[in-house]
Nucleic acid binder design. Structure first.
Lengths: 192, 192
DNA sequence: GTGTCTATTTATAACAG
DNA sequence: TCTGTTATAAATAGACA
């Protein structure tokens, strides 16, 4: 019996140039992705959101239980995907506004010391630049946000402390007392 | 020759109850979905964004070319294909990542210019540290992160300004030129 | 949590209508 | 453009490491 079709062929995952083929492949694979998203959703109880743009620019989306719920969750919390999210969030559950304020105050004091010593003289422009950049409205906080803030603050603090340590030779009184020796890696876990 | 394994079995797409099995299945299928998203991306030139939450609440995401770009496009431009408008995300409609990106780039350029001119002197280390932190690929920031950083630094700003104001009497050169007179309430919204 | 090994089920490239 | 067929490439359930 003669073969009716050539059947599936092995392909490399590279851009399809032929427009017709691409259209067909896109349509089928779009369903394929959505199917997979649905399966991991129902089978594993996972929330999923998938957004796909066709080359023509048309948007398709699928979500379990629905796109908006998942994206809202993602955008509001935005935990790093490959991070140890549950534990990381757990760790920051007790980070209060007061702790942040404390860190902030420490930082401010350090900056004050710098200013008093006239070391901020040339930095005014940069600070102004930051001010301009930062001078925008904001809404609310999430746990993750606090985490990031805290890390940023810690990094700032560590650098300032470093700076102060250098200066310690002339006047040790400037070194911050509660200096945290084991400052975290300032880098934030990458997304994806 | 005896069969080494039972091989794949047909399954119904329904919730896995056994925790261990679920964990394994989730891990595998997660990669499967991402692979499919990648394939339709490269092969069909389609932009894709996938967000998956594990049952434990851990977030994983994949995007082609990257998650933020696609989600931004989706949230800002495209209404949901089948569903009604994502009212829950209404708030994000007016914030584009491009805006933040622009600001980020402007800031970075300014800081770089300063460095090149040798104007970043000793006392400017804090700013440099922050610059380093900021001067990472934008993908590693979430939209939310940028917003938050901005808020965080507003507190810094206000206090630095305060400090500079105090010093203004003795030496006006310390006062930042574009000092914002109406500094925001520095209190941070409470968590929980 | 990941990696490996199979047997098997699924997904899909090339066609065809 | 969309849908269906078929031969074959890929994904993966289950068991184990």
């Amino acid at each position: 019996m003669p073969k009716k079709t050539a059947g599936r062929k092995k392909i490399d995952i590279e851009k399809i140039e032929n427009h017709e083929r691409l259209q067909v492949a896109f349509s089928k694979r779009r369903l394929g992705v959505f199917t997979k998203a649905n399966e991991i959703g129902t089978r594993c109880g996972a929330q999923t959101a998938v957004v796909v743009y066709s080359p023509a620019g048309k948007a398709y989306s699928y979500g379990h239980p629905n796109v908006e719920t998942v994206l809202d969750r993602y955008l509001n919390n935005a935990p790093a995907p490959d991070d140890d999210a549950p534990t990381a969030l757990e760790a920051y559950r007790n980070v209060t506004i007061h702790e942040l304020n404390q860190q902030y105050n420490d930082l401010r004091d350090q900056l004050e010391a710098e200013v008093i010593r006239g070391k901020m003289l040339k930095a005014n422009k940069e600070v102004a630049a930051f001010q301009a950049w930062l001078n925008r409205p904001l809404e609310s906080f999430s746990l993750r946000d606090l985490e990031i803030m805290q890390k940023a603050m810690q990094h700032l603090k560590s650098n300032v402390n470093e700076k102060l340590k250098e200066l310690a030779g002339s006047s040790s009184s400037f070194v911050v007392s509660n200096l945290d020796e084991s400052v975290d890696d300032p880098s934030i876990p990458d997304i994806q």
